[in-house]
Write a protein that binds this DNA or RNA. Structure first.
Lengths: 152, 152
DNA sequence: TCAGTAAATGCAACTGAGTTGCAAATCCAT
DNA sequence: ATGGATTTGCAACTCAGTTGCATTTACTGA
């Protein structure tokens, strides 16, 4: 797919333009939600870089600031582009307790916690849990059925 | 130490009063900050229950609601009593980027994110990062010295 | 108080995300 | 093109957390 954007970004942050970096960054650009190492590997198929390379590339991308570690779920880190985040706060991430899907809440804004008593707050991360539109409807609409069981 | 409180809590939530549960819960009651499995084991010394037991006891305590998983750091979960939390939101946890210590910000309150577009937000968790009073002072006070290096 | 039983514990072996060391491959400045 | 620094791949490792199963323990009811 269109790797132009990835190559552009790599040039911007002055990282060597290797095939692996371009592919991994492209996977992140195309992702509709934060992804983990295994998902990146899967999305790149047979030509995917080695697991170790993926972790190392993610590390270098995070160092430059163009990628963030969005959250950790089931002892596994999920990554996304940082272009929707301010230096201080990223958008909250919402996980549905019924269907287990996680998504970015880009339209939700929360004030920063106020620094006090000598604490200097540099970064704030918010995780939300609850029912997504699909699952909350299922709960309302059915009598006793658990949400999420309608997607078979 | 005073295991009375632990035994009381166990009775309240109708869990069997085993030595292991009492000890682990007592360790959590005495802890001044969230602790992980290894720290619980260490604090209980030679008489500590098996690692597996600690995880299983924590699981049962979390199920009853008297214990929370506060946060995950370095792929490792930290637990604390839930008595300072509402059903919807726990106090934020602050990690100092200089000395790496994490502490509970019980006096910081943040509004809940507003549910919108069919999302039902049931729980909100906030993580803060920055400089603790000690380390922020060290940065101010010194010329070029990194914060945290003053604590030998 | 004691026996029966369901629940809890301990052990050993496992899982799986993430890391490390090192040799081979690749990028890019000259 | 070529030399050297950077990057990659592989294999082997680490370590938090889990699983299966035999043994032990807490509670119930007589």
């Amino acid at each position: 797919m269109t790797t132009d954007k990835a190559e552009e970004l790599l040039a911007e942050v002055k990282l060597r333009r290797t095939r692996q970096r371009v592919d991994i960054l492209t996977a992140l650009i195309n992702a509709k939600a934060p992804v983990n190492q295994a998902q990146i590997m899967e999305s790149l198929g047979k030509s995917s870089p080695n697991k170790v390379t993926i972790y190392r590339v993610l590390e270098s991308l995070i160092e430059t600031g163009i990628v963030h570690q969005a959250y950790i779920q089931d002892r596994c880190a999920y990554y996304e582009l940082g272009h929707n985040c301010t230096a201080q706060q990223c958008h909250p991430h919402f996980t549905c307790i019924s269907c287990k899907e996680t998504r970015c809440m880009k339209d939700v804004e929360l004030p920063m916690a106020k620094s006090s008593d000598g604490f200097v707050i540099k970064h704030q991360q918010v995780r939300l849990e609850g029912l997504c539109p699909n699952c909350s409807q299922a709960v309302e609409g059915s009598t006793g059925n658990q949400a999420g069981t309608t997607n078979g």
